[in-house]
Design a protein around this nucleic acid. Structure first.
Length: 533
RNA sequence: GCCCCCAUCGUCUAGCGGCCAAGGACAUCACCCUUUCAAGGUGGAGAUCACGGGUUCGAAUCCCGUUGGGGGUACCA
């Protein structure tokens, strides 16, 4: 029943007869295998998250690469939910992932919500399939039932560690007689099913990015394929699904490289042709250099959206984390990226998540927005409750679209995220503005001269027949000269009077948008406040 | 411990044997523009291509080793 390395056929490559998409001549020409396949075929790729938590930039970047490949060469992109770890499954996680894709503008051809010809797309709904294939593996001697308890396994591992040996399953159940197995099964004893890894030889993993990676079978473990709850582990489930769903390229994080030889062995045990493995490098934390994780700083797409990031910026940034267009191009649309994408230009070294760079992309894309688009996309941030970062609740919703558009136009080139809008534009919407009167006094100015400037400005402005920025500027400059103040000094006082802050968009445009009435009223209030000092 | 992956400016990267005494971008500094802040423009600083051996007429580019970083080592994915 159990096999030894000498006669186990596991490491013998088997030609694919049932996988037309991969039936390439000369499959034995190992080094160039991946490269030669990549460019000439339709690709079917998948993103297979487990609904156990949040998907961050790293996960979506892997998904993005998969998506790019299928959209570049033609083919299908599939979303499959790997929910075999029922204990860790989190409610709503699937929706969050799908929502993330929709937000980014990445579509999928088959998936949990839309179905498809290879469904179902939830692994928990495919139990019967896994059971059937597990039996096949047991029958062919490539897998065996294991009755070891978690406690025994733990003890074994502990002892191995003490002896300085690598912790691995000791293959205790690998040589049970079929009679004994049958007896224990019928006695209702719980069991798992393990892969019977050959004792000797090597297993070669072909990675599209790194070439061939060779593993000594003797260092591999008889991993569990089917858990005692009857559900498969990742190793078995993903593989059967990938095969049945005719996946051609498996994009996954590089943390899967160590178990890749196991997967190759399983493919061989089934006599199936493995897909092309593309082990994408990790995305690392901005500091520390560890793999990005939800635990430390990793943000979900929902987080990024709420923080005012634009999907086109996130997409552009993500694509350039590990992939490059050429030696000088940074700004690329999804369409351009898709057209140019190739696995050959994907790097192998881990990349740090640099939010500063993301912010730059974001600001850039905000600046490119048409006035209508800017308004459309910023309005939700302005109108959301104050507690969630919106304008003060005292500001009546909905906002006047026309007015908001004019306001945003002024702040557009200053915004790095949409979420900054409320803070930057608050004085355009609130009735009263609060600031210490001392703020009115510009550098190298005193209260008296400031007061004088404010009064004269109020008079000048209120006499103006046109309330356009262009009509204000020259008279105000003349006034500054007359008062023997630098334009910056006079304008600073007026700016603070009108906006309550020293930093704002250009003063006259600000006043134009604010309107004559509000501007003059605030000017008078400022004068009164300063007089009261 | 064992196994595996990786290694070019602070960061993302270009580079796949000569065109590189290493190019672009973010960040940073200075200047220009300028009513503030931005944006924009110009320029600067910033990488002995981790280190050491090879191979070669010639290496950031190929090979080996070392060091460093990361990952894996579950009836999780």
């Amino acid at each position: 029943m159990a096999r030894t390395g000498a006669n186990a056929p596991l490491s013998t490559p088997t030609p694919a007869t049932d996988h037309p998409a991969l039936a390439t001549p000369n499959v034995a020409a190992e080094p160039d295998l991946a490269a030669s396949r990549v460019s000439h075929m339709e690709a079917r790729t998948r993103f297979a998250p487990s609904p156990t938590g949040i998907q961050h930039i790293g996960g979506f970047r892997t998904a993005l690469f998969s998506w790019l490949l299928t959209r570049h060469y033609g083919g299908q992109f599939i979303i499959r939910i790997e929910d075999t770890d029922t204990a860790r499954t989190v409610e709503g996680a699937v929706d969050a992932v799908l929502e993330g894709f929709r937000w980014l503008g990445l579509d999928w051809d088959e998936g949990p919500d839309v179905g498809g010809p290879y469904g179902p797309y939830y692994q928990t709904q495919r139990r019967a399939i896994y059971l059937e294939y597990t039996e096949q593996l047991i029958a062919s001697g490539h897998a065996y039932r294991c009755f070891c308890t978690p406690e025994r396994l733990e003890t074994v591992r502990m002892m191995q560690r003490q002896r300085g040996e690598p912790p691995r399953y000791d293959r205790h159940c690998r040589h049970l007689t079929s009679d004994e197995v049958a007896a224990r099964v019928s006695a209702g004893e719980p069991y798992t099913v393990r892969l019977a890894v050959p004792y000797e030889g090597t297993t070669r993993v072909q990675d599209a990015l790194r070439g061939v990676i060779v593993f000594e079978n003797s260092t591999l473990d008889d991993r569990v394929l089917l858990k005692s709850d009857g559900l498969p582990t990742y190793h078995l489930a993903h593989l059967i699904d990938d095969h049945l769903m005719r996946i051609t390229h498996v994009f996954r994080a590089e943390e899967w490289i160590p178990s890749a030889p196991l997967h190759v062995l399983i493919y061989e045990a089934f006599g199936w042709q493995p897909p092309i493995f593309v082990h994408v490098p990790d995305v690392l934390e901005g500091s520390g250099g560890k793999k990005l994780s939800k635990r430390h700083g990793a943000k979900s797409m929902q987080d990024l959206r709420a923080e005012g990031f634009l999907p086109e910026a996130v997409l552009n940034y993500m694509a350039l984390l590990g992939w490059s267009y050429d030696d000088k191009t940074d700004v690329l649309s999804l369409d351009q990226i898709m057209k140019a994408f190739s696995i050959e230009r994907v790097g192998v070294a881990g990349a740090r998540y640099d939010e500063g760079r993301l912010l730059w992309f974001n600001g850039y894309y905000i600046r490119q927005l048409t006035p209508e688009a800017l308004t459309e996309r910023t309005l939700p941030f302005l109108e959301r409750p104050q507690a969630e970062g919106g304008l003060p609740d005292s500001v009546a919703r909905p906002l006047d679209r026309e007015y908001t558009a004019r306001v945003l136009r002024l702040e557009q080139e200053r915004m790095k995220t949409l979420a900054e809008a409320p803070g930057m534009t608050e004085f355009f919407f609130t009735d009263a503005i609060e600031y210490p009167a001392s703020l009115l006094i510009a550098k190298q100015m005193d209260a008296t001269r400031t007061l004088d400037g404010l009064r004269r400005s109020e008079k000048l402005l209120s006499d103006l027949t046109s309330w356009e920025a262009t009509a204000m500027e020259q008279p105000m400059r003349d006034l500054a000269a007359e008062l023997n103040q630098k334009p910056g000094q006079l304008f600073t006082s007026v700016r603070v009077a009108v906006t309550g802050r020293t930093v704002s968009p250009p003063l006259f445009e600000t006043m134009e948008v604010l309107g004559r009435e509000v501007s003059l009223r605030r000017l008078r209030e400022a004068i009164a406040n300063l007089e009261a000092e």
